[in-house]
Amino acid sequence: MKRPWLAALAALIGLGLLAAAGTLNLERWGSFAIFFVIQASIYALLTLGLRVQWGSTGLFNLGVSSLFALGAYTSALLTKSPIASAGELAGAGLPFGVGLLGGMLVASVAAVALGAFTLRLRGDYLAMVTLGAGEIIQLILMNEEPLTHGPEGLRAIPQPWHSLLSPRDYNFLYGVIVLTALVLGYLLLKRLVRSPWGRALRAVRDDEEAAEALGKHVFRFKLQAFVVGSALMGLAGGLYAHFTTFISPADFEPLQTFIVWMMLIVGGSTSNRGAAGGAYLIWGLWVGTSVLSGLFPSIWAVKFAYMRVIAIGLTLQWILIKYPQGVWGERRRSRD
């Protein structure tokens, strides 16, 4: 085995899933798997977005959760029914596709606004400003009641073609939609990374001054990469909102940003396969351990949640030190 720890990780996930199979009955097993695929795919889209920004271009985005939130809230508000029911906000009643596109657009605009200030300066500043933006978006979600309905969030977000299937089987259909989006996003990035544009991004990442000397417009390339990645995050947000049909500020805490970073670092920040694979791997670990926590007495449940974050954080340190390129990362610089 080239990477024995990977086998250990897979074994742990398998153990968690087995435990899940034991506690859940078999009929719910299928819907559990679909639930997992949908969530992991949404994370994979977020991670692919970050892969363009960090892996390809070296841009430090610590505001993933805020772009995710912008996509989700925008898409929800665009598609919700225009007739407000009791204690609910009215939406624009537009179709699902328009909602997703709107979410991508708003996330892109936010990316331009943030990037224009910071992409000319050294990377740390982008990290600080995006971190701050993440917190401000949280404040806006909590406080701007007429727009976001505050801490209670938005309910009754419509789902596309909802009447086609019974509510029990609907997630199959939605799973297909999310997987389609993931495959399209993946193929698009694959093309982009191999295009001259992708090569220019890597040049900017590896040596900004050399790229500048070769006549590349460094700032423009950085801004483009930042916007493309953020649009993908906005798309993930929209898909998330229509999946859960209920979103609140608690869904977009800064911890989400960290989970996505973790997925990218573990998978390998310089490969699309790494980004998508890392998302599935870490989400499997996350879900698997939460199933395991169900086996302990409930007094331990809270402590277990803390221990899980600690374990994930320590795993990150270990991967950073031992496997700088991640599980699927490029081994040599020449291929990307």
């Binding site: 610590l62 911890l255 960290f258 970073w261 973790m262 670092i265 974050v309 600690i310 994930i312 954080g313 320590l314 990150l316 340190q317 950073l320």
Partner: peptide, 9 residues
Amino acid sequence: ISSAGMALV
């Protein structure tokens, strides 16, 4: 990145 993870730990 490492320090951001350490903050959570």
